[in-house]
Simulated scan of single mutants.
Amino acid sequence: MARMLAFIIMLIPALMAGAGIKFMRDTLFGKLVAPIPWLWLQFILGIIFLVVGLGFFAGFLLHRDRKNGKIPPKVKG
Rank of each mutant, 00 (worst) to 15 (best):
L15I: 14
A6G: 01
A19N: 08
V75I: 12
L11P: 02
G53N: 01
T27W: 09
G77C: 00
K74V: 13
F57K: 05
K22F: 14
L11D: 07
A6R: 14
L5R: 11
M4D: 12
L28E: 13
I48P: 05
P37Y: 00
P35N: 00
K67N: 07
L28A: 13
V75D: 12
I48A: 15
I9H: 08
K76Y: 05
K67A: 11
W40F: 13
A2C: 02
G20A: 07
P13Q: 04
L39M: 15
A17G: 07
I9L: 12
I44K: 04
K76G: 00
F60I: 06
I71G: 04
D65R: 13
F57T: 13
V75S: 03
M1S: 10
P35H: 00
G30Q: 02
G69P: 06
L50H: 01
K67Q: 12
R3T: 09
D26P: 01
I8Q: 10
K70N: 11
I21F: 12
A34P: 15
G77P: 00
P73W: 08
K31Y: 08
Q42I: 08
I44W: 05
P72G: 01
V51N: 01
V75Y: 14
F7S: 11
G30V: 03
D65T: 10
L28V: 11
D65Y: 14
I48W: 01
L32S: 07
N68A: 14
M4E: 13
G18N: 03
A58L: 14
F56Y: 13
A17H: 02
P13M: 04
P73C: 00
R25L: 13
P37C: 01
F49V: 01
G18H: 02
P72C: 01
V51T: 10
A2I: 11
K74G: 01
I21Q: 07
F7E: 10
R66G: 11
F43K: 02
L11K: 03
I48D: 09
F29R: 13
G30N: 02
I71E: 04
G18S: 10
K70D: 05
M10H: 07
F29L: 13
P13F: 01
L15H: 01
I12A: 15
K67I: 03
G30S: 02
G20S: 06
L41M: 14
M24E: 07
K70H: 08
A17V: 03
F60D: 08
I9M: 10
V33M: 11
A17R: 03
K31H: 12
L5H: 06
I8C: 10
A34W: 03
M1I: 04
K31S: 12
M16H: 02
L28H: 09
F57R: 07
P73D: 14
W40A: 11
P37Q: 06
P35T: 00
P37N: 06
R66I: 08
M10R: 15
G46H: 00
V52E: 08
L61H: 08
P35L: 00
G59R: 04
I44D: 10
